[in-house]
Design a protein around this nucleic acid. Structure first.
Lengths: 348, 348
DNA sequence: TGACAAATTTGGAACGATCCAATTATTTGA
DNA sequence: TCAAATAATTGGATCGTTCCAAATTTGTCA
C-alpha cells in the first residue's frame, strides 16, 4: 500500500522539465518563468508531492530547521508555560522542535542530547536537570551548536543563559511582607541544593537584615517544589516554638500547598497568615485567595529564550550572553494586603 | 570555527578500513571481526564522530525514528501529563518526538502536520484541536503514516483512537452524589460544543433519570474548561431560583474554580456543596478539600497511546482500532462523603 | 599443498534535494 | 539582421549513509 514516495524527479518528468527547475520552483526562485512555475506547482499538487527536508539538509551548507528543547519537569506548569512560549516563537519562525522531558535525570538528559545531535538540531534550549555539568553541554558547543540555558544556569558552561532575578524578586516580596507588619517571616518549600533556591533565600535574608529582623535558619524549610512540599513545609513551620506569621514560598506550587496546609490547621491564608509565591502561574490569579506572587512570566521567558537562540542560529556564531530577566511583585489577596488592619490577625 | 563534520569516510580513512566496514560497525553487525570493530570504535571516539540519521533515513527502506505529537493545550496540566506519558515510552523505545502545541488552532495544527510530514515522521499522536476534520488527517493516512487520536476523536477519520469512558465516569460520579443525598445536581464548566462534553453530560443526565430526578437544561452551565470557567459557572448556578446542592464539573480545573467560587460566596466545598471533578490531575489529591474526581490517569493514557502507535509503526501497516479507557471514581473530601450527616448541610 | 568453505572486507550505486557551471532560448540595440 | 546581453533551463556532482554483489582473506580437510 505504501507507494514509494514522489520525488523531484517524478515531478520533473510529469511536468516535462528538469529536476533543477523543480528545485528552483520549490525555493520560489525568481529565476524561473511564471508559466513554468505554475505548471510545476500544479504537478506538485496533483502528485501529492511532499518535500523531503532530510535530503535537503544533507548538503553541507544547509542548516536544519530543527531545534531541541529539553525541560526538566513538564508536569510543572511553570515549565509547561515556558515550553509553550518557545513553541510560539519557533513555530512562527518556521522551526520544529524536538521537545523532551528530562524528568530531572541527567542520564536521560544526556541520551536525549545525543539523540538530538544525531538528528542534526540547529540549536538547543535547555532547562537543565539538577546536577547537569558543563561537560554535558561541551560536545554541542564544540560542534558549534548554539545552546541557551534557561531558569537554571550550568556552572562553567560557556553557553547563553536566561534566568529571572531571583534575588531581587525575593527581596521585594519580603520587604512587602515587612511593610504589612510581619516580623517573623519564613521561607518555605523548594529543594535546598539549587542555585535558584540559594538566590531566593539570599534575597529573603537580606531583606530581613535590612529591616533589622532576624533570619534564623530554622525559618528556612526546604522540601519539594510542589504542592505537597508546601503542605509539609507549613506543617513544620507552624510547629516551631515561635511560628512565623507570614512566608515567602519557593514557588507558586509550594505556595498553594502552604494555603492548603494553613486551612487544614484552621487558619485562613491572607487573613491569619501572609503567603507570597514565586512565578505567577496562571492559576495564581483565580485561586482563592488570589496569590500574591513574584511574576516571572514563564511564557514570556520562553519566548525570549527562543529569540536568543534564533539570533545565534541565524548569526552562525556562538557568542554566549547572560540575561537576567527582571521580575515584579504582583500584590493580590494571599499576603493580606487588601484587608483592613483589624481584619488581619497577626500576633506580631 | 565550524569545522566540517566528521563522516564515515573520515573514520574509514583514519582506521584504515573501508566506509562499508565502518557502517557495519555502526550497526553492530556480527559480520565484522572483533579486532576491527575495536579499532573502528576507538577511531570514532577519537575523532568525535556524530552519526547522521538524516543521511541514513534517506535510503528508501529506512523509517525514521521520529514521531510527532500534537497537543491542543499544553498549559493544561492534563495534557502536559499526557505528553509526559508519551515521552516516557517514546524515549525508552529510542524515538525522539516533535512535540507541538496547537493552542486549539486548526490552522496552526495543519501547518505543524505539514512540517512534520516534511521531516519524515514515522507516526503521529494527536490530541486534536477543536474543529479538526477528517480531511486534516487524510494526507497522513494516504501516505501510510499511522495516526493515533487521543482524548478527542475525529469523526470520519480512519485512525486509531484512544479516549476515556466519559459517559460511564460521569454516570458513576452523579450516582455517588445521589447516594450522598443530593437531589439537585448541576453540570458545571466545559465548552458545550464538543464530543467529550456531550458524553459527560449524557452520563450526568442518565444517572439522574435512573434515580427519577430531573435534569433541567438550566443546570448544565458551560463555560471554559478552566479554573476561571469554574468560577463563572458556579456563580450562575448559585443564582438560579432553585440552586443545586452539588455539581459534577467538566474537569478538575473547572472543579477547582467551582471551589474558589463557593468560598467567595461563603460556602465551604464539601460541607455546604458537593463538588466532583473529572481527570484526577496531580493537584486533586493535595488540594483542600481533596477533590473527589473521576480518575483518567492522563500519564497512563499517554503511555498507552504511545504503545498503540509504536505497535502500528513496527507492524508497518495501519489498522485503526478504538480503545475506550476505563475510568474510576476516586472519592475524597470535596463531595462531602467523609462527613457525618449533621455536619453536611444540604437543604435537600 | 591445493581445493573449497567460511569469514571478512570492500567498491559503487542508490536515496532526494541543491547548486554550480554550462547550455539554450529570448530580447535588445544599432 | 546579427551580435551581445539577458532570461530560463539543465546535467552532473555532491551531501553521509546503506546495502548489494563481488572480492579478498582466513581456515579446514584430505
Amino acid at each position: 500500500m505504501n507507494k514509494s514516495r514522489v520525488t523531484v524527479v517524478d515531478i520533473a518528468r510529469a511536468a516535462g522539465v528538469s529536476k533543477s527547475t523543480v528545485s528552483l520552483v520549490l525555493q520560489s526562485s525568481p529565476l524561473v518563468n511564471e508559466t513554468t512555475r505554475a505548471k510545476v506547482n500544479a504537478t506538485i499538487r496533483e502528485l501529492g508531492y511532499v518535500y523531503n527536508r532530510g535530503a535537503a539538509n544533507l548538503r553541507q551548507s544547509a542548516s536544519s530547521r530543527i531545534i531541541g528543547i529539553i525541560v526538566n519537569d513538564l508536569t510543572n506548569s511553570f515549565f509547561a508555560e515556558l515550553a509553550v512560549g518557545m513553541d510560539m516563537v519557533m513555530q512562527s519562525a518556521g522551526y520544529v522542535q524536538f521537545l523532551s522531558n528530562s524528568a530531572e535525570s541527567v542520564d536521560r538528559q544526556r541520551e536525549v542530547i545525543a539523540s538530538m545531535r544525531e538528528h542534526g538540531i540547529a540549536g538547543l534550549i535547555i532547562s537543565p536537570a539538577r546536577g547537569t555539568e558543563a561537560s554535558d553541554l561541551k560536545p554541542l558547543a564544540a560542534s558549534g551548536i548554539p545552546v541557551v540555558a534557561v531558569v537554571r544556569n550550568v556552572v562553567g558552561a560557556k553557553v547563553s543563559t536566561l534566568f529571572s532575578d531571583n534575588y531581587a524578586g525575593a527581596k521585594d516580596a519580603v520587604r512587602h511582607l515587612i511593610d504589612l507588619g510581619h516580623r517573623r517571616i519564613a521561607f518555605l518549600g523548594g529543594i535546598a541544593n539549587t542555585t535558584v533556591f540559594a538566590e531566593r533565600v539570599q534575597g529573603w535574608r537580606d531583606a530581613l537584615a535590612e529591616a533589622g529582623l532576624g533570619a534564623p535558619d530554622s525559618c528556612v524549610i526546604g522540601s519539594t517544589a510542589s504542592r505537597a512540599g508546601g503542605v509539609a513545609a507549613i506543617e513544620r513551620a507552624l510547629s516551631l516554638p515561635e511560628p512565623p506569621t507570614a512566608a515567602l514560598c519557593f514557588n507558586d506550587a509550594a505556595a498553594f500547598g502552604v494555603c492548603d496546609g494553613l486551612r487544614t490547621a484552621g487558619k485562613e491564608p491572607g487573613r491569619d497568615f501572609g503567603v507570597v509565591g514565586f512565578d505567577d502561574v496562571i492559576e495564581a490569579e483565580t485561586a482563592v485567595p488570589a496569590l500574591t506572587t513574584v511574576s516571572v512570566d514563564p511564557q514570556g521567558m520562553g519566548r525570549r529564550a527562543a529569540q536568543m537562540l534564533l539570533k545565534q542560529v541565524n548569526a552562525g556564531r556562538v557568542e554566549p550572553e547572560t540575561i537576567v530577566s527582571s521580575v515584579r511583585l504582583v500584590v493580590r489577596q494571599s499576603c493580606g494586603a487588601g484587608l483592613k488592619d483589624k481584619t488581619r490577625r497577626i500576633s506580631a
